[in-house]
């Protein structure tokens, strides 16, 4: 969170209770064991992804056809795929790409979603109506199906997968932002700011949005999980990331045809990687929500 601007009397006045709020939040979060487990899992995944270039034992695309489809061994900790590529290295690099897809698509979606939702919620009236009707139109499509449709137009690539997931996630963020803004708008400090005549955009961003960060963060965390799963689904349908770029989706996609031959490692390990990361993100999201919700917290 941004450091409160002490020169701003309204925020300064507000900063004391917020700090204790923050402590309450941390305490509640730590008390939730699942949430902590979630955080640890996510941190492990992020670490693996960020350091993939250094910790991966081999080049993820280096083929060695004489040693293909080998089960896990000392040489290849997680075995090899049909081109004799090291599965561990591919999964580590896949973590990088899959997390990047999940993270960047939702960051982009959050940017636009907060903008649209914030404007709609704060200004209200006809603008609110127009923006939210447009969002309603996009929300009227099952997300994966809309994503498939858009991806068919754009063609498969990492960038396009990010774009598509971002586009279909914008309305979700916008909706959460709007309702959070609507709630905050009625709060005393915003009313006070309006009274002393601060310019509209300053009010909007400094006060309202800062206080809406909590619900948006929760939504975004859960959406990152959804985004990663969507990437695997799109790659599985052959619409996602192009070979030979490793992502969890493409590795799983290549592995599925070998399960019947009892070559389980190509499917099991990326499956576990996905599962643990999803669990982590979902626990984290839930934990954040519970810790941020005063109603649950005091329970």
């Amino acid at each position: 969170m941004a450091t409160p601007d002490l020169a701003d009397p309204l925020v300064a006045e507000d900063s004391q209770p917020r700090r204790s709020q923050f402590r309450l939040f941390v305490d509640a979060f730590i008390a939730n064991r699942l949430a902590v487990v979630g955080l640890v899992l996510v941190l492990i995944a992020v670490f693996a992804g960020v350091t993939a270039d250094w910790i991966a034992p081999q080049d993820p695309n280096a083929q060695n056809l004489s040693r293909r489809l080998e089960p896990p061994s000392a040489d290849y900790l997680l075995g090899t795929d049909q081109y004799g590529r090291d599965l561990l290295s591919r999964i580590l690099h896949g973590t990088q790409v899959s997390l990047a897809v999940g993270f960047f698509s939702i960051v982009i979606a959050s940017g636009f979603g907060v903008l649209f939702g914030g404007i709609a919620g704060y200004l209200g009236g006809i603008i609110d109506d127009i923006v939210m009707r447009i969002m309603d139109v996009f929300l009227a499509f099952p997300a994966l199906i809309l994503a498939i449709g858009i991806l068919a137009v754009l063609g498969p690539s990492v960038g396009n997968v990010i774009t598509v997931i971002a586009v279909v996630s914008i309305p979700q963020i916008a909706r959460v932002t709007r309702s959070a803004v609507l709630t905050q708008k009625e709060e005393e400090y915003v009313q006070a700011a309006r009274v002393i005549g601060l310019p509209v955009h300053v009010r909007l961003f400094k006060h309202v949005l800062l206080n809406c960060l909590a619900p948006i963060t929760v939504q975004a965390t859960l959406l990152v999980a959804w985004a990663i799963l969507t990437e695997t689904a799109l790659s599985f349908l052959g619409l996602g990331v192009r070979p030979p770029t490793p992502t969890w989706g493409t590795i799983l996609f290549e592995g599925k045809d070998y399960i019947l031959l009892n070559i389980w490692w190509m499917s099991l390990f990326p499956g576990i990687a996905i599962m643990l990361t999803m669990l982590g993100l979902n626990f984290l999201g839930d934990g954040l929500r519970d810790a941020l919700d005063p109603k649950v917290r005091t329970d």
Partner: peptide, 13 residues
């Protein structure tokens, strides 16, 4: 949570 965390096509296979 496992239910939402496992890709359903993978579970299907």
């Amino acid at each position: 949570m496992l239910g939402v965390s496992i890709p359903n096509f993978w579970l299907g296979i």
